[in-house]
């Protein structure tokens, strides 16, 4: 009895189990995928914002995909401060030039990369933003400088449609 031969029945068991597993997975997948963003949520992909009223040193917060977006018209001081930071001082090194193509305008998701709270304007040790939830400090470029957040605040895809209108998304 030590020699166990593969029989027709073993093949049938394996084949039945395999087909059953594939069938079960095929049924389970729609149940899982229905929880992903639906077509109507995805359809709200872009939003246009009039920024003509924004003066330097002020921030406009708009809602895009259910999340706040900060649009900051930076003062020259803030720009200088952001551009004079050494890369090695940064937790998540990114050049301000890459984050704000037009230095006067900083557009980013107002969502702390730690656990998703909305950071407060003009607060914190780096004159940028401060997240009240777990104490993350961001600089004038929205880069993480101190605290538990792992990354800089995200810059979404955006463009200037004309001099006064930004299209986000």
């Amino acid at each position: 009895m030590s020699e166990k031969k593969t029989k027709r029945r073993d093949f049938l068991f394996t084949a039945t189990t395999a087909v059953g597993a594939v069938g079960a997975a095929a049924v389970v997948w729609p149940m899982i995928d229905q929880m992903n963003p639906d077509a109507s949520v995805k359809a709200l992909a872009s939003t246009e914002v009039d920024v003509s009223s924004l003066t330097p040193g002020n921030t406009l917060t708009v809602l895009w995909r259910g999340k706040p977006v900060f649009i900051r018209r930076r003062t020259q001081e803030e720009i200088d401060e952001a551009r004079n930071v050494k890369m090695e001082d940064l937790i998540h090194p990114e050049k301000d030039e890459d984050r704000a193509k037009n230095p006067e305008w900083l557009v980013m998701l107002g969502v702390c990369t730690h656990l998703g709270c909305v950071p407060l304007n003009d607060k914190g040790d780096y004159n940028g933003w401060f997240c009240p939830c777990h104490g993350s400090h961001y600089d004038t470029s929205g880069r993480i400088r101190k605290g538990p957040a792992p990354w800089n605040m995200e810059v979404p895809k955006y463009e200037f449609v004309d001099a006064n209108t930004i299209k986000i998304g």
């Binding site: 929880m35 963003p37 949520v41 259910g66």
Partner: peptide
């Protein structure tokens, strides 16, 4: 997280589930 939310933030789909 997106799957849990059913969107890009906590919103109505999150509430109903």
């Amino acid at each position: 997280v997106t799957w849990l939310w059913g969107g890009y933030s906590v919103d109505n789909p999150t509430l109903t589930r």
